[in-house]
Amino acid sequence: MNKSRRTQATSGSLAGSALGRYGYLVPIFVLFILVELYPFVYSVVLSFWNKHLLHPNADQFIGLGNYIKMLQSPHFIRAIRNSTVFTVGSVVFEYLVGLGSALILNSRHIKFRNLFRAIVLLPWVVPIAVNSLIWKFMLSPNFGFINQLLAAIGFPHLLTVNWLGDIRYAMPAVIFVNVWRSFPFYTITLLAGLAQIPSDLYEAASIDGASKWQSFIHITLPGIRGVSQVIVVLHIIWTFVNFDVIYLLTKGGPLRMTEVVPTLLYREAFDFFNMGYAAAMGVFLLVVLAITVGRAYTKTSSFQ
């Protein structure tokens, strides 16, 4: 009798605890459905429809029509090209600047290292909107700080250069601002990676007569390979889908020279109200990233 009661109690508490465990998951599951799954499924469905907010009674299922129109659009092709240039340019320079600053801050010869590490983080902790608007002001022609500075140090002809409004300089300028904003993340992450490399490896290499460069190539780079892969893959994704930096700096202009897929998508959705077409771009972006970078990300994650 007692045994049977004990068994019942045990199974009851097991059921209760299992229910409790799953119960704890309910809020996040509901949240996931509401803010992730539902919008995603809705976007995919929308991408097969001709849905224009100005013509609410003309909704029509058009299958792959939006995708065909998108791939035939010179604006979309240009946006893909610009997104690629923006992403490659940003990630390459972010990595180089981040690695350079991490190596400097990792050096034992630098005094006040912790202070400098904190200062390096500043661009990254400033909100993107504030960051972008400050740079927009500093890069403005005639009155911007950068042009005033350039004129003061002997380049008066640069006073009037419209860095963000001239088709020749707009893309390098937005890449520069994005690099300035993002490199501290690389610095801090790579610093953590550098700290993991055992110092006796460098001592052994030194005893064997290896130069600084050889130590860097054969010890430092392999030592931070794992962390480098993770941050580069993450930043490729983040930069390819980045909207705020370019939108706040140039809105995709001049002459669509900085128009990337997210800004084009936004323009189609909220300037021209072409929701079905914009949804197709969003789905395309997701699929491309999933196939290319997502694969690399999975490999990197498993490597980690």
């Binding site: 403005s140 022609p141 005639n142 009037t160 250069v161 419209n162 963000l164 409004g165 001239d166 088709i167 202009g253 001049p254």
Partner: peptide, 9 residues
């Protein structure tokens, strides 16, 4: 250099 100017400029 006025190419691309906004009204603030």
């Amino acid at each position: 250099y006025i190419r691309g100017w906004e009204y603030n400029d």
